[in-house]
C-alpha cells in the first residue's frame, strides 16, 4: 500500500537555529505513529510542517501523492484533509461547542448545514459530550474542550489526524478521557500522528514510536520493542528517565 505521508529530507530553520535536520520517513494508512523525545526537539514543528503552518527550508512533504508546499492551493487542499488537535485546544470562544464543530465544514468545505449538523451531533455522541453541545468553551473543563477539539477535527472527514501534545495541558483526571477517545479512533483504523509524553499510550495504542532528538530521528520502531530494547543510548536514557 502506498504511504499516506512521505517526509523526504525535511529541513526547518528558525533564523540560525536548525529545528529539523533532514527528516525522512513514510507513514502508511492506519499507522499510529507516536513521536517522543526531549522538549524542543522539533516534534511539534514536524507536525506543523505537514499541514503548512510552517514553511520548509529544505526537503519535501508528500501527502496522498501531492507536494504539500507546492503552492497556496496545495496547502489549502491538504488542510481540508488533515485534522489537527492542539495542546491548548484553540477552540473558538465566541461559539458554542456545536458551532465550533460545524464552522469549518460549512464555511471552508461549503457543505449544507443540515448534513453537517447531523454529522456533528453524531461526533458529539462519539466523544461522549452530547449533553454539552450548547456550552461555550469557557464553561467546559480542559478535557471536555479537547474532546470538542477532536470532534471539530473529525467533522472535516480527515484522512490524517495530527495530535500535538493533546494531553499536556490537562489535569491528570481528564487525561484519561481524552486518551480513551484517541484509542477509539485508533481502533477505527485511522491514520494518526501523535506528539506526546504519554509513553503508556504510545505502547498500548501506538503502532510505531519515533524518538527524536536535536532535530533528527534517532530511533524508529515498535513501541514495545523500543521500550524494552532501545537500540540507541539516547533513546534508552530518555525512556528510562520518563518512566522514573
Amino acid at each position: 500500500m502506498s504511504p499516506v505521508l512521505t517526509l523526504d529530507g525535511v529541513v526547518k530553520r528558525f533564523g540560525a537555529r536548525t529545528i529539523l535536520d533532514g527528516i525522512s520517513m513514510d507513514v502508511s494508512p492506519g499507522e499510529i505513529v507516536c513521536f517522543v523525545g526531549p522538549s524542543g526537539t522539533g516534534k511539534s514543528t514536524l507536525l506543523r510542517c505537514v499541514n503548512g503552518l510552517e514553511a520548509l527550508q529544505g526537503g519535501r512533504i508528500i501527502f496522498e501523492g501531492r507536494n504539500v508546499h507546492e503552492s497556496a492551493r496545495s496547502i489549502a487542499d491538504v488542510r481540508k484533509r488533515v485534522g489537527m488537535i492542539f495542546q491548548h485546544f484553540n477552540l473558538y470562544p465566541h461559539l458554542t461547542a456545536l458551532e465550533n464543530v460545524m464552522l469549518a465544514p460549512v464555511i471552508v468545505h461549503k457543505e449544507a448545514k443540515p448534513a453537517v449538523e447531523e454529522r456533528a451531533r453524531a461526533l458529539f455522541d462519539k466523544v461522549r459530550l452530547s449533553h454539552r453541545i450548547n456550552a461555550y468553551p469557557a464553561q467546559l473543563s480542559g478535557g471536555e474542550q479537547q474532546r470538542v477539539a477532536i470532534a471539530r477535527a473529525l467533522a472535516a472527514n480527515p484522512h490524517l489526524l495530527m495530535f500535538d501534545e493533546p494531553t499536556s495541558a490537562l489535569d491528570p483526571e481528564t487525561v484519561g478521557d481524552v486518551l480513551a477517545v484517541m484509542r477509539d479512533l485508533a481502533e477505527e483504523g485511522r491514520t494518526m500522528l501523535v506528539v506526546t509524553h504519554e509513553i503508556r499510550f504510545a505502547v498500548d495504542v501506538g503502532t510505531r514510536m519515533v524518538f527524536m532528538d536535536q532535530g533528527k530521528i534517532v530511533e524508529d520502531s515498535d513501541p514495545k520493542e523500543m521500550l524494552a530494547n532501545a537500540r540507541t543510548d539516547r533513546a534508552r536514557q530518555f525512556l528510562s528517565s520518563i518512566r522514573g
Binding site: 488542510r79 481540508k80 485534522g83 484553540n90 477552540l91 464555511i107 471552508v108
Partner: peptide
C-alpha cells in the same frame, strides 16, 4: 486574541 486562534483557523483551512 491568542495566537492559537489563527493557528487553529489556518489548520482548518480558513482563508
Amino acid at each position: 486574541i491568542s495566537a492559537g486562534q489563527f493557528e487553529a483557523a489556518d489548520a482548518q483551512g480558513f482563508s
